[in-house]
């Protein structure tokens, strides 16, 4: 009986020896995401959107910026030309190809969304990293500042920041939207840095006399960025919505030629009874893209959550 048990145990040991390490958390998480239909829908939406944005100039069937004489001839005070051969979604209020403008709009949204998120991420990580690494009064001061920023509703904060700009441009929108996400990233990183600071392996590294700098950059930061990365994906969605909202309110680049979903939506208000599609399509585009990033981010968070490991 015992010998049988011993043989079994040895067998398991051998198997354990030969197994190539097992799966890492990242690989494991990716695998779980591939099995999750929600993640796949999100990933497909994001992929289509990114491809559209990257290759917009080649995909757009017509020039999105110049009015076409054919379409201009059909413009009336009470009607804007609809779908016709060569222009599948018809014209906008200036006689430009609506479909091409929608496609180029994807590029605008992606640039603004990504830039805003990256800037917010960078600034937020510096603040959160400092607070988490140094603690003490630095932590208290920085966190009270983020508290103040968080106490203002995000869109209101973005509008206030954008309104400060003397010459509104695309950058105004990017910076205003970025500032909104700064306190969120800062708090997240600080939180997970603090958890790391209390962890066994940081204590073990301290017991080896490892320099504080090394402990922060090698032992605390890399173990803290996971939730921040997930948040960045979710922030992409809100950034795109916020950026559209600012443009809609006329706080962005005032150039009417710019093909931007929020701006298109804003301008379409005047023609709601004439051609509601002008508002409908950009709105749907914003919603779908934001949904795509949200689904992807949420499923990413779920997959990385060790509680859901199966």
């Amino acid at each position: 009986m015992t010998s049988l048990l011993n043989i079994r145990r040895r067998r398991v040991d051998e198997l354990a020896e030969t197994a190539e390490g097992g799966t890492s958390l990242t690989v494991d998480a990716l695998r779980r995401m591939a099995r999750n239909p929600v993640a796949i829908i999100g990933a497909v939406i994001v992929a289509v959107f990114v491809l559209l944005a990257l290759f917009a100039p080649w995909i757009a069937p017509e020039d999105p910026y110049t009015p076409f004489q054919v379409l201009k001839d059909q413009l009336r005070a009470d009607s804007i030309p609809g779908p016709q051969p060569g222009f599948p979604l018809g014209s906008d209020e200036f006689g430009r190809d609506f479909l091409s403008r929608l496609i180029v709009g994807a590029q605008q949204s992606l640039v603004v969304g990504v830039m805003a998120t990256l800037i917010g991420l960078a600034v937020g990580m510096v603040i959160g990293g400092l607070a988490g690494a140094l603690g003490g009064w630095v932590d208290t001061l920085l966190m009270r500042l983020t508290d103040i920023m968080l106490s203002v509703p995000s869109l209101l904060l973005a509008i206030s920041i954008a309104a400060l700009a003397r010459h509104p441009s695309q950058w105004t929108v990017i910076i205003a939207v970025a500032m909104v996400s700064v306190p969120i990233f800062a708090r997240l990183l600080r939180g997970s840095m603090l958890a790391q600071r209390a962890s066994d392996h940081v204590l073990a590294a301290t017991a080896l006399g490892v320099r504080r700098r090394t402990i922060v950059f090698r032992h605390m930061l890399p173990n803290s960025v996971g939730p921040v990365i997930v948040q960045a994906t979710l922030t992409l969605a809100t950034s795109i919505i916020d950026a559209a909202a600012l443009s809609f309110l006329g706080l962005g680049d005032p150039d009417p030629a710019r093909a931007e979903w929020g701006l298109m939506l804003g301008n379409a208000q005047r023609y709601l009874d004439v051609r509601p599609e002008l508002a409908f399509y950009p709105a749907v585009a914003i919603i779908v893209v934001a949904l795509g990033f949200t689904l992807l981010g949420e499923s990413m968070r779920e997959a990385l959550d060790p509680k859901n490991r199966r």
Binding site: D200, A204, G209, H219
Partner: peptide, 21 residues
Amino acid sequence: RERRGRDLGMVFQDPLSSLNP
């Protein structure tokens, strides 16, 4: 900090959590 790891070493209870993953 200068002495820890050089003059005094320490081994902890839980080997998995004591290593940086």
